[in-house]
Design a protein around this nucleic acid. Sequence first.
DNA 1: AACTCGTGGAA
DNA 2: TTTCCAAGAGT
Length: 363
Amino acid sequence: MIPHEATPPAAALLEWYDRHARRLPWRIGPRERAAGVVPDPYRVWLSEVMLQQTTVTAVKPYYEGFLERWPSVADLAAAPAEEVMKAWAGLGYYSRARNLKACAETVVSAHGGRFPADAAGLRALPGIGDYTAAAIAAIAYDEPAAVVDGNVERVLARIFRVETPLPAAKKEIRALQAKLTPTARAGDYAQAMMDLGATICTPKKPACVLCPWQEWCAASKAGVAESYPRKAGKADRPERQGAAYVAVRTDGAVLLRRRPDKGLLGGMTEVPGSVWVDGFRADPRHGDAPLKADWQAANANVVHVFTHFRLTLSIYRATFDRNVAAPEGHWWSPQAEVAGEALPSVMKKAIEAALPGATRKRK
DNA sequence: AACTCGTGGAA
DNA sequence: TTTCCAAGAGT
């Protein structure tokens, strides 16, 4: 543990938050909260799951869309899983969508449609880990749970000059956060920490001069804030290649199939294709294609970067008559429905490379 | 503990 | 162009 004389007071952070809180669609701001507005645990949960490793900008339209379509946890629990996957398409980390659905069903079937009333109960639900359980408990119930996300890790690593590199420093930082978390205004405190990390104590070029905790920050006072938190080195990103086949019918329908529930892009929809491996060479006879045809190479390859590898797809296109049957496990998605399919971004790119405009939503 | 698991924007 | 990263969870 890092020794320290002075701990930063929650009051200073909360004063700053009262003046500078971000206004977000899912947030009950400090003024509303003081006026007695009670957060809806469903909305807090929905936003927190969407925000896992995902930017506020990316989440906003998805949050609004989900809330409009499924206003309550009971609505979401009753929704077809396929519709939830379609609505999540493009947001990434698709196991979150499966767990979201499973969690909603559990809340309804095992908890009478109400979310568990504390962090420990929330933690037992699918898709809710240490961070999300604490965040929901703090924000929705004002429970003084130790909320530790990437923002908190960065802020506290700087305040206390934590030399242990992440992720090993997590336990140490959690203990610090538990000590700092006030019993009053726990929800505002949690959100204040995240706002501080997102707007002042940023990864690069932190605005220390504007920070309400600057005088307590060991790293800032030493002029080395940006060098915290310490991090373990990352492995470089390997390369993989593959082929994707965009089969289009004369009426514009596109041949699709569903990926297995588990693993990469689990449960999402894709165009048929090869395996993705390093050293892949496209079969000139297209033995891995879903149908026999005169496959034409698209002008450009599709490059897509996943978290742990970079994929280059060779795109092939062929046109088929309307009476050609879809192979086992495949279906012809009508032209008007392609844009609404549960297509991850990489698959939209693949289809666009062969059929420009085919995945664009129209009104 | 170390991997797997998306995406798009910023620098 | 490349790297980094954004309110992590599951295994």
